[in-house]
Amino acid sequence: MIDVLYFAWVRERIGKTKETVETEAETVAGLVKELSERGQRYALAFSDLGSLRVAVDQELLDFDASLKGAREVAFFPPMTGG
């Protein structure tokens, strides 16, 4: 079980801030593939990975990052702080 969080326009497109997902995926990319199959909203949100960033257990990582032992995965657009 992994908590999946969405921020900014990813949250708006998917229509959720957070959900708990049962997954066998070994990497973030595998999880993205599973989520994309959940419907049009997901497919649209994940259609361009180049415009997305991912954090695993609150650490910024790449899409090929392992999900081994991961409890929380967050998807969001490039950050615009400052």
Binding site: T80, G81, G82
Partner: peptide, 25 residues
């Protein structure tokens, strides 16, 4: 400042009378 801009998880959205748009990095 350089790192806070693109490595701290903040997202800005600008609203006008017409629209609401996420600021693009």
């Amino acid at each position: 400042m350089d790192y806070l801009k693109s490595r701290a998880p903040f997202w800005k959205k600008e609203a006008t009378d017409q629209s609401q748009d996420w600021v693009v990095s």
